[in-house]
């Protein structure tokens, strides 16, 4: 049986760091998603007809 536990000494702290970093970045990007959605929905809904959008 091959066990990765022997690699746990470096794999675990690295995985933990990467996971936390991903989590933080993704929370930040989620906020951006919400801001973009809020702004575009407002823009699109307040126009009488669609001309052109960036």
């Amino acid at each position: 049986m091959m066990i990765l536990m022997s690699m746990g000494s470096w794999l675990l702290p690295i995985s933990l760091t990467v996971t936390i970093a991903f989590g933080i970045v993704i929370i930040g990007l989620s906020v951006c998603w919400w801001l973009i959605l809020k702004r575009t929905v407002k823009t699109f809904n307040t126009e009488r007809k669609r001309d052109h959008h960036d």
């Binding site: 066990i3 990765l4 536990m5 746990g8 675990l12 995985s15 990467v18 996971t19 991903f22 993704i26």
Partner: peptide, 18 residues
Amino acid sequence: VVQLGNTLSVLFVINWIL
């Protein structure tokens, strides 16, 4: 074939969700 141990397994599942 591969056994990661509990802590690593949980971390990888969290990674997959992310």
